[in-house]
């Protein structure tokens, strides 16, 4: 089972996770820029975070045979803090990078006026840079928030096939697929979505424009939920090709619209990034 996790926050995960993910079949991931547990209070700390998503984390992932790409944006929660807004002015510099395959995560948290403006402005940036957009749907008041998100997406003029709305559930999947956007599902140990519910949704809505992710982060989450969903699909009678479509071909097709998803050959053993020597890596060895 080859797996592309289209949404996972590896910054918060350990090298044990990387090893387990590779053993489970994960060969590529997209890490969206988002909020951390601790709120940020200045633009500069975002730039260091973006640099990490473009530098340190791909380097770390490569030691475990996993290709790492990212999405860059000012997230909706921190869009409400005026101290963080100057980040918007530096985004074009980051959206020009090779491993940035979408603008994201954008969207709503509390559905404030500030979030409205920042969402619209970043959808515009996606259009200007020819990038897809990864849109987070709010955990609270999700159905209303999803409807409002779709309105803003329509008004922005971005092509719906360039947009994925994420963290969907039984009540929001229909309107998203009807809009022409992609539907993302975050399979979690307790909240958001489970493997069995995911399988029922796939039975009802089909496999078109659907992506499954672990959205694993610093909270209670599981970076192997993608594989567990694949196993639940097989147990329910889906074919191996169906699983490959949901867990690999679909996310590849979505992010490939960026023109920057430069995937290496995914067969074989862990390979070093460019010029680094895998054998001599200090992370793998134990970091000194």
């Amino acid at each position: 089972m080859r797996i592309f996790d289209p949404h996972i926050h590896m910054t918060s995960r350990t090298t044990d996770d990387y090893e387990a993910m590779h053993a489970a079949g994960v060969r590529a991931v997209v890490e969206p820029a988002f909020w951390l547990g601790q709120p940020r209070t200045s633009p500069e700390t975002f730039y260091d975070y973006f640099d990490s998503l473009l530098g340190w984390e791909p380097y770390r992932a490569a030691q475990f045979g996993i290709q790492h790409f990212c999405t860059i944006a000012l997230n909706p929660k921190e869009a409400n803090d005026p101290r963080c807004l100057p980040v918007l002015d530096e985004l074009p510099r980051y959206l020009a990078k090779d491993r940035v395959v979408a603008v994201g995560e954008i969207g709503y948290d509390s559905m404030t006026k500030e979030e409205d403006e920042v969402l619209a402005r970043q959808l515009q940036l996606a259009v200007e840079h020819g990038l897809p957009a990864l849109v987070h749907t709010p955990h609270r008041d999700k159905a209303a928030g999803t409807r409002r998100t779709l309105d803003v997406v329509r008004e922005s003029g971005i092509a719906p096939e360039l947009v994925v709305l994420d963290h969907l559930n039984e009540l929001t999947v229909g309107m998203v697929l009807d809009s022409g956007c992609w539907a993302g599902f975050s399979v979690y140990p307790k909240t958001k979505m489970s493997e069995d519910r995911m399988v029922r949704i796939l039975r009802e809505h089909g496999l078109d424009r659907v992506m499954v992710n672990s959205a694993a982060d610093w909270g209670s989450s599981d970076p192997l939920k993608t594989r567990k969903t694949g196993l639940a699909m097989l147990a329910d009678g889906f074919t191996a090709d169906d699983v490959d479509r949901v867990l690999w071909r679909n996310p590849v097709a979505f992010y490939d619209q960026s023109g920057r998803l430069d995937l290496d050959d995914t067969d074989g053993e862990p390979k070093p990034d460019d010029t680094s020597s895998f054998e001599g890596n200090s992370i793998r060895r134990g970091g000194e």
């Binding site: 340190w56 010029t275 680094s276 001599g280 890596n281 200090s282």
Partner: peptide, 8 residues
Amino acid sequence: GNDNTLIE
């Protein structure tokens, strides 16, 4: 930093 490719 800690990226061997950059240190080299």
